[in-house]
Amino acid sequence: MADEVAVAVIGAEEVPAGIADAAYHVAVPADAVADDANLTLAPVVEGADVVIAEPTRHVKSVVGKLAAAAGASVITDALSIEGGVATEMYFGGVGQVKRQAETSCAFYTAGAGAFGDAQPSGGNGAAEELAWVAPANAVKLVSSSPIEKSGVDLTKSDVVVAAGRGFAEEGDLDLARAFCDKIGAGLGCSRPLAEGVNWMPTETYIGVSGLMLSPKVYVGVGISGQMQHMVGVKSAGTVFAINKDKNAPIFKQCDYGLVGDLKTILPALTAAL
């Protein structure tokens, strides 16, 4: 996309050598937040034609402020960028939209998947340390504590079962767990089960704002089939669905469906396998 590439890393990590033409590092002061790194990075971004940023919360703040200062908008979560045209999800996957920046510098956020198997190259050595420039009205960091992760990595599962709001009680998830054990599946969920009720770890929810998976087998249980969820398993090999509502949208997107109550179906199915 460009002749000259500079990389800037915010935070504790070291910047690897040999990945760009120039490298910069921003150390965030102990009582500051990474979101406030925009003024520090402004000189690096100045004059750039393209800025590509990682789609994390911190970096979305930083790149948003840089774009605002440039009178631009960020094209976010690009699935691909070709000839300056980015493809993004629209309405959580109901559609896809192609967009192009009309400003002199184009700002994007994109995950690693957007660039296929492109490999980094370049002659950068040790990164240049940028001195922190605090904004007026800085946000003050009081504490930062790591989130304990469940250790579940559904991206490595060939078989994925997803539990949805059809599970009326947390205890009913044991039915899904027994079923998973029988078929060697990883248990994921829809977003509502990971947020608000917190029955499932955040890193196990599937969909446009969570995990995008391509398992061999996906079984949606008590999942209605909203696009925001289904887009996360669109490329699954075989899609199975269990739902008590015969008109649930998931039945229009599955290979095999069973209409009925998951509380009776799951034990019977687990026994039949």
Binding site: G95, E102, Q253, C254, Y256, V259, G260
Partner: peptide, 26 residues
């Protein structure tokens, strides 16, 4: 304010062909 991003095209993604073999559990 003037547009900073231009929308070129909005399309539905291609849906995978599924068997749609749905049965009543009873």
């Amino acid at each position: 304010a003037a547009a900073t991003v231009k929308t070129i095209e909005v399309k539905a993604p291609e849906a995978a062909e599924r068997k749609l073999d749905v049965k009543d559990a009873a």
